[in-house]
Amino acid sequence: MKIASIEAIALRIPFTVGGVPAAGVWGGAGMQAADSLLLKVSTDDGLVGWGETFGFVGVPAARAAIEQMLAPACIGRDASQINEIGLDLQRSFHVFGRSGPLFYGLSALDIALWDLCGKAAGLPVYRLLGGARRGQLPAYASLIRYADAEAIAVNVRRAIADGYRSLKLHEVDLAVIRTARAAAGPDIEITLDTNCPWTLHQAIDMARALQPLSLRWLEEPLWPPENYAGLAALRRRCAIPLATGENATTLMEFEHLLRIGAVDVVQPSPAKMGGISALRDVFALARAHNAQVMVHTFYDGPGLLAAMHATAALGDADAMIEWRYFDMAAQVLGNAVVPRDGMIALPAGPGLGLDPDPEVIRRYRIG
């Protein structure tokens, strides 16, 4: 099963979000399309595996890293040697960065190789990871930032009407967050991802103000995101559980933040930090430190499937899947994994269980 070709495929799919998105770390205000980058790995015996990088404005850089660095180093290699390929590529290119576009490309490659190995074995990836505990996973609706009280109230109610019992906000304005809680009522679970806006002292003040809102977790409250000592200090003074990890890359980063007691909920992002192989290691590390894993999945292709298979096989009974709550013009994977009543079905076919829809690729491919 030799790697014969690697193709990076960029997509731009329009979406709406029940209002006007505010500016955020993913793009500017009023964004109306989601860019994603798929990876198609073909072997000499005719199998095809699919991966995905983290997208949005990072797509061109990740694509360049794949096409100019990673792909040429992989042609002719045995696709079943997932760990060996990943480690060799990290060692070969480490001087160019241990995070960012290069690692996004490595992540997509790892996911695609797991997909290939599952297809070659005739088994779903969750079976390769030890077997799934359940065939459906609870999903939470991850809303975009609106920075507007009226818009957040409308969309909180809309997500609840769609069957979600758990929501994630990306707001930083206290009045908007309070409006969201009022719109949701006391029985809907809310988490808050702030995308690293505050100093430690600002975060302490905000955590105190947020405490009456009964958040399940407060996510990435500090700048910079690798300020693990600051997170540990905040955790000692904060009654809300802290979550972080989507911007961590190497296993040593995860080990550091867990060892110093910086986090309650760790959030590895498979399309950023090394794919399924790295996810497997982080799940094991988190168990050793009594932390919960909630995989970061702000994407909707093979990266989402990677998170689902790993969570089904390795996560605890309360682990959820993040669902990007956009009204997409088309779904990369079709409608098979769209949540129903707050639950998302785990594909049971070989590999990741689903391939990207070729018609969606044809219609929305760019570059």
Rank of each mutant, 00 (worst) to 15 (best):
L11T: 05
F15T: 05
A34W: 11
D35A: 06
T43A: 07
D45Q: 05
G49C: 04
F54Q: 00
G58E: 12
A64D: 08
I66C: 01
M69G: 08
P72K: 00
R77V: 04
A79R: 03
Q81I: 01
R91K: 09
A108N: 07
L109G: 07
D110E: 03
L116G: 04
A121S: 15
L129M: 03
A132E: 13
R133K: 10
R134T: 15
L137K: 08
N155F: 06
R157W: 02
A161R: 14
Y164T: 12
A175Q: 14
L192R: 00
L200R: 00
Q211S: 15
E219M: 01
P221F: 00
W223V: 11
N227L: 07
N227A: 14
Y228Q: 02
G230V: 07
A233V: 10
N247I: 05
T249F: 13
L251A: 03
E255T: 12
H256L: 09
R259E: 13
D264W: 06
G274D: 03
A291P: 09
M294N: 14
T297S: 15
A312D: 09
G315Q: 00
W323S: 01
W323M: 02
A330D: 14
N335A: 10
V337S: 00
V337K: 00
V338T: 12
L346F: 10
L346E: 07
A348C: 13
G353R: 09
D355M: 05
I361S: 01
R365F: 04
R365L: 09
